[in-house]
Design a protein around this nucleic acid. Structure first.
Lengths: 125, 125, 125, 125
DNA sequence: GTGGTCTAGACCACA
DNA sequence: GTGGTCTAGACCACA
């Protein structure tokens, strides 16, 4: 499930950021307990704990003693996280594909194809 | 210069794969020596060595005793490497952006914008 | 303890293959940690690490993050390793002795003598 | 042609020792020049030179300025070399096969089989 | 505790 | 010069 070559706790952070930015997890909402998340992700609780701590130090979640961990209510924060992640993704794609020698038109076409195949798989668009 | 969260030797491998797939490095051509590449990339020679050996075990380069390391002359191999890398990049983008809640149109628009900005920087199209 | 003219990590690989093929180390069993094996063999942990990684890339062992390194449970794999090693040993003997000018009968007699001496040493049969 | 994991100059030494011990090269006989041997073995002359020097330091060949390199005329020397090589070969086989868990009978049978297959290949016995 | 990566530095065989 | 191996020692993620 996880990429072997990137720290798992970073990948967990990204998953949670995606949940927050996409709205699947609402502002001020409660995150699963470290233990539950560890079971869900098949991972050692320490690793989830590490991810939660980093998310807190980035201001994306906050902890209330004895209550649990909650999504920030700072909408501006969430917007900036979304922008950062999106930019990082686009940059990785553009730089990587350019490095491989692809032209812009080809790159856009490949992405469209990928979406087309993905939607065929689930029958939606 | 390198991403802190991915092993350097893997990033070196990707750089060289890009050089090979884009044609910047020609089939059968000689790679820089381990030591030279280490100086160029500002890393320890052992780290470059690790990358070269993995590339060899993947069949992308081969070494001749005392002579150096050379790009494979197997064009099919290079084609398959290019496809793998391209697919990985597209998948990462598509999955990541979808996870963030972006729609396909937005994704394509963001990429086009990124290219536009990049070309403005260098004055090309 | 090690042959000076063959890389130590290869010799370590062979030792472990022998442990696995002979049944001294059981399928699915845990190997000693890199550090323990390094102490046992009086070599640097990095050298054992190298051996373990090559064994993994050959499919003879697998690692579980943070847990350790384990013998494969693929019996066919083990059988093929045993065959390869045995064939290599027999070929080396036969070719070497033939190159020295020994006849088959002499070769077989020398081996029988070697075993006889070895068993005298330990008092077995 | 050469084993990748053992120094080539050692392998060349063994080949020449075999030639000497088997009588294919006669006592007092002249060895090929370094250059010719290098061409024959597809190897750099420096490597053959290294092998010749080691053979000389072991007393198996001797050099006469301007004349070339010659096989020793000390028969006792040759006998002891033959014994050493033979013992090494037998020990490697016996130890390796024992380490793999083979019994003596099996080992002898495998060797006989190997010879049988070899003789089938060339039609001789 | 366990594997994995990295640096620094040394030495070797081969061309 | 060129790749390959090894030691010593440090630091990291994961369980």
């Amino acid at each position: 499930m996880f990429d072997e070559n990137t720290p798992i706790y970073l990948q967990i952070m990204d998953l949670i950021k995606q949940d927050v930015c996409s709205g699947r997890m609402s502002m001020g909402g409660k995150l699963p307990s470290v233990r539950d998340k560890a079971i869900e992700l098949q991972v050692n609780p320490n690793t989830v704990q590490h991810a939660y701590q980093e998310l807190e130090s980035e201001g994306i979640v906050f902890t209330q003693r004895g209550m649990g961990t909650f999504v920030t209510e700072d909408e501006g924060k969430i917007d900036s996280v979304r922008s950062e992640l999106a930019e990082r993704l686009v940059r990785q794609l553009a730089d990587g594909m350019t490095g491989l020698g692809f032209q812009r038109r080809q790159i856009l076409r490949l992405i469209e194809e990928y979406f087309k195949n993905a939607s065929d798989d689930v029958g939606g668009r």
